[in-house]
Computed example of a mutant assay.
Amino acid sequence: MKEGPDIARLAALIGDPARANMLTALMSGKALTASELAAEAGVTLQTASAHLAKLDQGGLLRQRKQGRHKYFTLAGSEVAAVLEALMGLAAGAGHLRSRTGPRDPELRKARVCYNHLAGDLGIRLYDSLVARGFLTLGEAGLDLSEAGRSFMQRFDLDLADLATRRSPLCRECLDWSERRSHLAGSLGRALLGRFEDLGWARRVEGTRIVRFSPKGEAAFRRRFPLSGQGG
């Protein structure tokens, strides 16, 4: 056997259709029970439990107990980033699910990607911050400039607190629907939370959709303009 990371094992874990459906459901960032994941995968509870055990052993899931119930989440943002990238590859290659409908445009416009904003509005957020010099890409990776830090503080984000988190402050994530970057990391998570706190947007229960109100979207677009749009 060749030396190095064994990507075949992880690929096999993700590649099973039932397990892939479970992992995709957990991209909402919400902790789900085995019964809920069984329904997402279209399998029995016993079969789902076997799949979940394999995903847990493979390091893709984290489980926790609360009372009599056991809940499952993705193991972390790195797993979410891999899944989002795979979705982009699948979409680009034409491997799309047959179940389409009115939710598809909403998913493409704005959705949660594990814990941060993705879709068209997520890309707009990222592009606006880069165009205004608030986000910079250096040898150490993506980071906030001094102007960016001032902007975020004016937006009532506690950067000192975000710096204590385990995840990096800023990280690029490849958007599956557009195959362009959106903002992940603790800053991406905090921004989505701020949009919700302001009443600009809310998550649609049981989906990954993030729905902005008309006033909220207008405020978002003013706060995060693209080049030539003022702000």
Score class of each variant (00 low, 15 high):
residue 116 H to Q: 06
residue 230 G to F: 06
residue 161 D to C: 05
residue 167 S to T: 11
residue 5 P to D: 14
residue 37 L to N: 03
residue 140 A to R: 12
residue 113 C to V: 13
residue 215 K to L: 12
residue 223 R to D: 13
residue 123 I to D: 12
residue 116 H to E: 04
residue 209 I to Y: 01
residue 7 I to A: 11
residue 78 E to G: 07
residue 92 G to P: 04
residue 191 L to N: 02
residue 80 A to T: 00
residue 183 L to S: 09
residue 192 L to N: 05
residue 207 T to G: 05
residue 171 R to S: 08
residue 173 C to Q: 15
residue 89 L to C: 10
residue 218 A to Y: 05
residue 65 K to I: 09
residue 180 R to G: 08
residue 151 F to D: 00
residue 24 T to L: 11
residue 218 A to I: 04
residue 143 D to Q: 14
residue 58 G to V: 07
residue 98 S to E: 15
residue 197 D to W: 13
residue 189 R to N: 14
residue 76 G to A: 02
residue 14 I to M: 02
residue 71 Y to P: 02
residue 224 F to Q: 07
residue 36 E to K: 07
residue 115 N to I: 01
residue 72 F to Y: 14
residue 197 D to V: 02
residue 181 S to V: 14
residue 183 L to N: 05
residue 180 R to T: 08
residue 86 L to N: 04
residue 83 L to P: 10
residue 131 A to E: 04
residue 82 V to H: 05
residue 41 A to D: 05
residue 73 T to Y: 09
residue 230 G to N: 00
residue 113 C to L: 08
residue 199 G to P: 08
residue 200 W to I: 08
residue 124 R to D: 05
residue 101 G to C: 04
residue 11 A to C: 10
residue 8 A to H: 09
residue 198 L to G: 03
residue 11 A to M: 09
residue 89 L to Y: 15
residue 74 L to T: 01
residue 142 L to A: 00
residue 27 M to L: 15
residue 17 P to I: 03
residue 23 L to S: 04
residue 82 V to Y: 10
residue 151 F to W: 07
residue 215 K to V: 13
residue 74 L to N: 02
residue 131 A to S: 14
residue 4 G to V: 10
residue 171 R to E: 14
residue 195 F to L: 10
residue 197 D to A: 15
residue 22 M to C: 02
residue 225 P to I: 04
residue 196 E to W: 12
residue 79 V to K: 07
residue 93 A to T: 13
residue 94 G to F: 01
residue 94 G to R: 02
residue 18 A to T: 00
residue 72 F to D: 01
residue 231 G to K: 07
residue 56 D to G: 13
residue 229 Q to S: 07
residue 110 A to Q: 03
residue 94 G to I: 00
residue 145 S to W: 06
residue 158 D to F: 11
residue 90 A to V: 07
residue 113 C to H: 12
residue 30 K to H: 14
residue 211 R to E: 15
residue 98 S to F: 11
residue 84 E to C: 14
residue 209 I to T: 07
residue 155 F to R: 12
residue 5 P to S: 13
residue 28 S to T: 13
residue 152 M to R: 03
residue 60 L to K: 00
residue 31 A to P: 01
residue 222 R to P: 06
residue 49 S to L: 13
residue 121 L to G: 08
residue 168 P to H: 01
residue 110 A to T: 04
residue 225 P to L: 06
residue 106 E to H: 09
residue 140 A to I: 11
residue 141 G to N: 04
residue 56 D to R: 12
residue 22 M to N: 05
residue 42 G to N: 03
residue 40 E to T: 09
residue 9 R to N: 06
residue 75 A to C: 12
residue 171 R to T: 06
residue 6 D to Q: 13
residue 196 E to P: 03
residue 127 D to C: 06
residue 227 S to G: 03
residue 154 R to Y: 14
residue 190 A to I: 05
residue 46 Q to T: 15
residue 25 A to C: 05
residue 226 L to I: 01
residue 210 V to Y: 02
residue 158 D to Y: 09
residue 133 G to F: 06
residue 49 S to C: 11
residue 162 L to M: 11
residue 56 D to S: 13
residue 3 E to D: 11
residue 145 S to T: 10
